[in-house]
């Protein structure tokens, strides 16, 4: 299962990996801004869910919650 920024959606989709979760985040921050632990865990849970819910290769899901800017407690 792949978690990555939606910035590379076209390039990733062209490779047809099994399961992709795209996050609406700037490059270099696929899971979150630094120390946004809540977002990191939520994205992992959604992504891990694809391991059970996807039924075919090339499954692409877009994570809908927006990127949150910090600062967050470290």
């Amino acid at each position: 299962m792949i978690i990555m920024s939606s910035v590379f959606k076209d390039r990733t989709a062209a490779m047809n990996p099994a399961r992709i979760l795209l996050t609406p985040h700037p490059m270099g921050r696929p899971l979150s801004a630094p120390f946004d632990s809540e977002k990191q865990k939520d994205i992992l849970k959604v992504g891990l869910g694809l391991l059970e819910s996807a039924t075919s290769g090339g499954t692409i899901v877009e994570y809908e919650k927006p990127y949150r800017t910090g600062p967050f407690e470290s």
Binding site: S5, A14, M15, G57, P66
Partner: peptide, 26 residues
């Protein structure tokens, strides 16, 4: 943030150098 992501997405739009037709799945 949205403007940055939107611009980055436009800059990197298109399939790029690697395209595979097979869809591996387990």
């Amino acid at each position: 943030v949205e403007a940055i992501v939107r611009a980055q997405s436009q800059a990197y739009s298109g399939a790029g150098h690697f395209e595979y037709d097979n869809k591996p799945f387990a």
